[in-house]
C-alpha cells in the first residue's frame, strides 16, 4: 500500500528524469520562464498595457549597459517607449497562453475525433478524410482568411479584444488532425487488446469503454506530441504575428515584438528585435528538449519528427 506521492518518488519516470541533465536544465529554464511570464504583473518593472505610464520620449532607449541606456529600463525600450523587459514578459505570457490554449483545443477536438474514428468503424473513413482535408490547408491560409474577415468585421480596435481567442481558435483548428491521427492509431492498437474485450464481456457501454478504458491508455502518445505541438503553436503564432496577422502591437506577443522591432534594426535599435528573438528561441528550444525527453521516456519508437 503506497500513496501516489510514494509511487511517484519510486517511479522510473522520476529516476530517468533525474539522470538526464538536459531534461533537468530544460525543465528548470522552462519553469522559470513560465513563472516569470505569469507573474509579470507583479514582477515586471512597468506595465506596458497602461498607456498612461508610457512616455514616447523614452522611445528606443538602449539597454542599461550601453551608452544612452538608463538603469530604469534594463533592456532598453521599444519604439513606443515601453520597457523592453516588461513588454517581453507580458509578450511571453501572451505567447504561452496562445500556445497552450491552441494545443488544448487541438487536443480536445483531436482526441474526440481520434477516439470516434478508432472505435466506431463506421465513422472512421469520413472523419479521417475530413482530417486530411483540414491538413491540406496550411495554418497560414486559414489564418489569413479568418484573420482578414475578423479584422474587417470588428475593426482594428475591436480586433485587439478578440485577438487572443481568435488565434487560439485558428491555430487550434489548423492542427487538430495531428492529434486525431495519433489517437486513432493508438485506439486501433488498444481496442484489440483483451482488456477491452473483458470490459465488453462485463457489459459496459461503448462510451464508457472508450472513455474509461481506451482513452487513458492512449494518453502517452498524446503527451508526447503535445510538447512538440505547444512549441509549434507558439512558433505559428509568432509567424502569424510577423505577417501582421497575429497579436496587435498594443498587446504584443513575442512574435509581434520581433516584427515591430524589425523596422528599427537598421537604425541601430537592434535590441527591440534581438531580445524577444532570443527569448522566443530559448522558449521553443527548452520545450522541444523536454519534449524529446518525454518521447524517449514514454515510447522510443512511437513518434519521430
Amino acid at each position: 500500500m503506497r500513496t501516489r506521492w510514494q509511487r511517484f518518488k519510486q517511479s522510473y519516470m522520476l529516476y530517468n528524469f533525474l539522470r538526464d541533465p538536459v531534461a533537468i536544465t530544460s525543465f528548470i529554464i522552462l519553469a522559470f520562464l513560465v513563472f516569470t511570464s505569469f507573474a509579470a504583473p507583479i514582477i515586471a518593472p512597468h506595465d506596458p498595457y497602461d498607456s498612461s505610464t508610457i512616455d514616447i520620449m523614452d522611445a528606443q532607449m538602449a539597454p542599461a549597459w550601453i551608452d544612452g541606456g538608463s538603469s530604469e529600463f534594463l533592456l532598453g525600450t521599444d519604439a513606443q517607449g515601453r520597457d523592453m523587459l516588461s513588454t517581453m514578459l507580458y509578450g511571453m505570457r501572451v505567447s504561452i497562453l496562445i500556445g497552450v490554449g491552441a494545443v488544448c483545443l487541438q487536443a480536445f477536438i483531436g482526441i474526440i475525433v481520434g477516439l470516434l474514428s478508432g472505435y466506431v468503424r463506421r465513422l472512421d473513413n469520413i472523419l479521417m478524410r475530413f482530417a486530411d482535408v483540414q491538413l491540406s490547408f496550411s495554418t497560414y491560409m486559414v489564418a489569413i482568411f479568418i484573420g482578414a474577415i475578423v479584422q474587417t468585421m470588428f475593426g482594428v480596435a475591436g480586433y485587439d479584444r478578440v485577438a487572443v481567442p481568435l488565434l487560439i481558435v485558428i491555430i487550434g483548428l489548423a492542427e487538430w488532425p495531428q492529434y486525431a491521427r495519433t489517437v486513432r492509431a493508438s485506439v486501433l492498437a488498444e481496442r484489440k487488446k483483451e482488456y477491452v474485450e473483458a470490459a465488453r464481456v462485463i457489459g459496459l457501454s461503448r462510451i464508457r469503454i472508450m472513455l474509461r478504458h481506451i482513452l487513458p491508455n492512449t494518453l502517452s502518445p498524446v503527451l508526447v506530441i503535445s510538447t512538440v505541438q505547444v512549441a509549434n503553436a507558439i512558433m505559428s503564432e509568432a509567424a502569424l504575428s510577423f505577417l501582421g496577422l497575429g497579436m496587435p502591437i498594443t498587446k504584443p506577443s513575442l512574435g509581434s515584438l520581433i516584427t515591430a522591432g524589425f523596422e528599427y534594426i537598421f537604425s541601430g535599435s537592434w535590441w527591440i528585435t534581438i531580445f524577444p528573438g532570443i527569448l522566443l528561441v530559448s522558449l521553443i528550444l527548452v520545450i522541444n528538449l523536454l519534449g524529446d525527453w518525454v518521447r524517449d521516456f514514454l515510447n522510443p519508437k512511437l513518434y519521430k519528427g
Binding site: K193, E194, Y195, E197, V201, I202, G203, R206, H213, N217
Partner: peptide, 27 residues
C-alpha cells in the same frame, strides 16, 4: 442488443489467454 444482453453478462464471463493484455494497465 447490448442492453438486453446485460442480464446474461453476470451469468456468463470470460477469462482470457494473455495475462499481460487482459488487465487494463491504467487501473
Amino acid at each position: 442488443n447490448s442492453v438486453k444482453m446485460l442480464p446474461y453478462r453476470t451469468k456468463m464471463q470470460m477469462v482470457f489467454q494473455d495475462p499481460y493484455a487482459s488487465l487494463n494497465p491504467r487501473m
